[in-house]
Amino acid sequence: MLKKLVLTGAAGRLGSYLREPLSKMCEELVSTDIAEGVGNLYANERFVQADISKFDEVESLMEGADMVIHFGAIVDEVPFEDIWGPNFVGSYNVWEAGYRHGVRRIVYASSIHAVGMHPSRDNIGVDAPHRPDTFYGLAKCFTEDLGRMYWEKRQMESVHLRILSAAQVTGARALGTWLSYDDLIQLVTRAIETPVVEWSVIYGVSNNDRAPVDNTKARHLGYKPKDNAEVFAEEILKDAQPMDPTDPGHSRLGGPFASVELGQSGLATMDIVDDKKIT
């Protein structure tokens, strides 16, 4: 069992599903967020309010930590000036503070938006070149490269989870991109438990018949998703309107993020159900 894990973004929707399983993997789970709290705490969990864009607040979390599960960020497209602190500086702060305190590995919530302008039909693998669709996606590219540099220069491991759609299936695109919460937990668990990861990238997607990406070169992580969005296909498609192949929002991996103007919300065009786990 690990001695200490740190979870950033613990008050977020995905963080709410990760807290309990992470608490079972370590003696102490430190959950942190810019929000004031996360609800009731698990037996070995403590909460620390912190702003990841401030180095001193991040550094104070890292003492004695084995690994960091870094999910803290602005999770939508916003103007560059707004995303710079949490998503760019915040990532640097986590890696640098972690390095100074001997953190062995960081598991990072990257995103499909790091490669969001690739055509969906190309079935890209984890070694596809970056093609960000937004400033949000650009921040994911930055952090993936940051993690690679810290591995190659400082031997600090990291796993970058390019999450596709970790939300309820409410539209046709999600039949390919869905990541169930159970598969999310398995994905993070594999990223923590795999003995050697060096610098790794893996797509966060369930075992969907229509999955638009290929995880073959990430098999060393042992991720074997169980769920398949095809069980929702009949219901989703019966009233679905034909997609426009000339619309990047329909033809590119980034979906709506591929068609919005830079700095404009991508989530505003999506039907995301807020089913955060309540503790």
Rank of each mutant, 00 (worst) to 15 (best):
L7C: 11
L7K: 10
L7P: 05
T8E: 03
A10S: 14
A11G: 14
A11L: 07
R13T: 12
L14S: 08
L22K: 09
L22M: 12
K24D: 00
C26Y: 01
E27W: 05
E27F: 07
L29Y: 11
L29M: 12
S31C: 14
I34Y: 08
V38R: 06
N40K: 15
L41V: 04
Y42S: 05
E45L: 11
E45N: 08
R46A: 06
R46Y: 12
F47E: 01
S53F: 07
F55V: 02
E57G: 07
V58Y: 08
E59K: 15
S60Y: 01
M62Q: 02
E63H: 15
A65Q: 06
V68W: 06
V68Y: 07
V68A: 06
I69W: 09
F71V: 00
A73H: 06
V78N: 01
E81S: 13
I83W: 03
N87L: 05
N87P: 11
N87F: 09
S91C: 14
S91W: 01
Y92C: 08
V94A: 08
W95Q: 04
V103N: 07
V103R: 06
V107G: 07
V107L: 13
Y108A: 02
S111T: 06
A114Q: 03
V115L: 10
V115P: 04
P119I: 00
S120D: 01
R121Y: 13
R121T: 11
R121H: 12
D122L: 10
I124P: 03
I124T: 04
G125M: 02
A128F: 05
H130G: 12
H130D: 13
T134D: 05
F135I: 10
L138W: 10
K140T: 05
C141F: 05
T143Q: 13
E144L: 10
D145E: 13
L146E: 02
G147T: 03
M149I: 15
M149R: 15
W151H: 13
E152F: 07
R154W: 03
Q155P: 00
M156K: 03
M156Y: 06
S158E: 02
V159G: 02
H160K: 01
R162E: 04
I163W: 01
A167M: 12
T170I: 04
T170M: 14
G171P: 00
A172N: 02
R173T: 02
R173L: 13
A174V: 01
L175P: 06
T177P: 00
L179I: 06
S180F: 06
D183E: 03
L184Y: 08
Q186S: 09
V188A: 07
T189R: 14
R190N: 11
A191P: 00
T194D: 09
T194L: 03
V196Y: 11
V197Q: 02
S200N: 08
I202V: 15
G204A: 04
V205C: 12
N208H: 11
R210A: 14
R210E: 14
P212Y: 02
H220T: 06
G222I: 02
K226Y: 02
A229R: 12
E230I: 14
E230L: 14
E234T: 12
Q241T: 13
D244P: 02
D244Y: 09
P245Y: 08
D247N: 15
S251G: 08
R252V: 07
G255K: 01
F257T: 03
A258S: 14
S259M: 09
V260S: 05
L262I: 01
G263D: 08
G263I: 05
Q264N: 00
G266F: 09
L267G: 07
A268S: 13
D271H: 15
K276R: 15
I278G: 00
I278V: 15
